[in-house]
Design a protein around this nucleic acid. Structure first.
Lengths: 245, 245
DNA sequence: TGTCGATATATTGGATCCAATTAAGAAAGA
DNA sequence: TCTTTCTTAATTGGATCCAATATATCGACA
């Protein structure tokens, strides 16, 4: 259960990330507080916080707008994520994993194997794989024992674009998506192999390559969106925007 | 001139970074507001903001304390800075510098050369070199044209430890410090050379090596502090904590 | 008709009051 | 003497009022 104060921040964050508040939409304190049924004080604090998270942009004297992110910024964020997760993989390899971490990573890899063993996937499988993928990366960041990595990533975490926050897939081309996700899964295997052998540089290189794959896809994704085609976006289940958390 | 609202945040940030508010010291809204001569509202917002910046830690029900940072966290921050500035150098090399950027970098390198040409340095030189160094790194981050890098770094920017924010030097051993700073300056030359030749990978590698040098020194620095020895710390002149800004 | 200026409105920033929560301390019982 | 519980004090969170500021609109004048 959230503390009451955090509720307003969470609700607004959710509304932004879900697209309910469109990118570029203007937000003022009074209308927002009336709409949410609270006073201006918590809304003010929420606006400041969300501005710091990079979700809102301040307009002097006229409130805030939902931040507009360019394609260049999305690409940049993915590259930043790449180097940070690469560093995490390197440090995880240098630190040696705990048995709990090793066991959970192996379990996640096996779960992934099971999803791909048929030679094809459906939408449900991809949703499941999203959670597996997210947890896999999370464990490696934890295993780096470097809290500064998670702190630095927290800025990128909330970029109001699905292609950064979630795995997106083209439901009209599941065959191709099978290959893409399967390749990502193979990279997970390789990262784990490198980490468990203490090969820090190799772990870092593979992890950066892994982020690069996302980068390439984000570009395709944005081109498809421009041309009007729609892809399925998997929302992050465990994101801090979840109101029931 | 600062906006009134930003003043409280700036003053508190300054007090933390300068050490006036010691690491671990407790802060409550009411005493702080009285001390600063403002009401609780701006103090509340300031506490939230500084918590997000990583300068304060929240104690449920008992206010905040100035964040306590371990040696491990400092090392981690420097490594994070290393990969991010490494990425910046790579992307700067891939983008080609503007003529303004090229000219300013060359000017900074020459200013550094002048400081080191005597074969020795005094404390004043080191203070000057601090500004040169800071500006050099800033330009490269700008030249990367990747705003996500600066955003990710903003978390590390304010760590309440001089060894991260500022250059520290041992005033009792200026001969050794000459070699150390001169070496760092040579690395600047090499980074610039790689960037101007469009050699992204090389630029990245040198920049990471450069951060590594800081890392090693931070460890020595913290050991000296433990043993009671004091080194001179150069405060950042252009930091956002400057009240006159 | 275009530009400059004044007025009005929208909006944020600060102060203070009240409510809710949490932690600490004291007292009572085992 | 230790533990548990109840009371009290400290502290934050929310609501509302007032002040300051910036923007936008309207009107006058060139």
């Amino acid at each position: 259960m959230n503390k009451p104060g955090q509720q307003v921040i969470g609700r607004l964050r959710q509304m932004i990330l879900s697209g309910e508040l469109a990118s570029g939409q203007r937000l003022a304190e009074i209308p927002t507080s009336e709409q949410l049924g609270v006073s201006r004080t918590p809304v003010r604090i929420a606006f400041r916080t969300l501005e710091q998270e990079g979700l809102l942009t301040k307009l002097s004297g006229r409130g805030y707008i939902v931040r507009q992110v360019t394609q260049l910024e999305i690409s940049g964020s993915i590259e930043v994520r790449g180097v940070l997760e690469g560093l995490a993989a390197r440090q995880a390899a240098e630190n040696t994993l705990t048995t709990e971490q090793t066991e959970e990573l192996i379990a996640l890899l096996k779960q992934g194997d099971a999803l791909f063993e048929n030679g094809n996937i459906d939408e449900h499988d991809l949703t499941q794989y999203h959670d597996i993928n997210q947890r896999f990366h999370q464990i490696i960041i934890e295993a780096s024992q470097n809290p500064a990595i998670a702190e630095a990533l927290s800025r990128n975490e909330h970029l109001p674009f699905a292609s950064v926050n979630a795995l997106a897939f083209d439901r009209n081309n599941l065959k191709q998506e099978y290959r893409r996700f399967n390749f990502a899964h193979m990279q997970h295997h390789a990262v784990f192999d490198a980490i468990s052998k203490g090969q820090g540089s190799r772990a870092e290189a593979i992890m950066r390559e892994h982020a690069n794959a996302t980068l390439g896809y984000a570009k395709v994704f944005s081109q498809m969106e421009e041309s009007g085609e729609k892809m399925q976006v998997i929302n992050t289940k465990n994101s801090p925007t979840n109101l029931t958390q």
